[in-house]
Amino acid sequence: MHSFYNFVSGPLAWVAFILFFGGSIYRIVSMLKLVAEKERFIFSYMSWRYSLRSIIHWIIPFATVNWRRQPVLTVVTFAFHLCLLATPIFLLSHVVLWDEAFSISWWTLPDAVADIMTIIVILGAVYFLVRRVTQPEVKFVTSVSDFVILAIVAAPFITGFLAYHQWLSYPLVMCLHVLAGDIMLAAIPFTRLSHMLFSPFTRAYMGSEFGKVRHARDW
């Protein structure tokens, strides 16, 4: 089990991080190149002011009409995404590993708080799953890939939660946790999890078009 652990937290983690950072840069650069090649006009409509105006409205809960129309979803999605990003970055165990490997460290969350945040992510994933299978308008546009990406995101948190509490077979769970984390990182640029990379751009473009040309709000 240790050699497997060393593999997933060593070479495979390197691969995952390279795929994540390299893949993200590659996806964004190639998308911008595609804009330059075929839709260069987009650049001329971009505006910092209106991009930020739009992004800021949409990253604040209840700051848009649609967020206000969907109060439960809004609370869940903001809590889910916030915990999803913050927990792995500020988790003590992760920072300890960074420190050991590269002598870099930063502020960390108390474990009890991280535990609650992990539960929030898992419950959020359950909410999205239930929503996907019960809400007709969501179900209609759901494909297998939607369940796969949800599972990819939920897995590191479920295994991380089990590993922290040392439930089930700890060494196995721990190895699966690291593996799940590797998979999620590597999957972000190459699945629709890439909305993490592209949504700021699509939002900014729509914000610019609405602000600069249409003189209307897009929220």
Partner: peptide, 8 residues
Amino acid sequence: IMCGECHI
């Protein structure tokens, strides 16, 4: 070598 192996 894993966290929970020592911090039981």
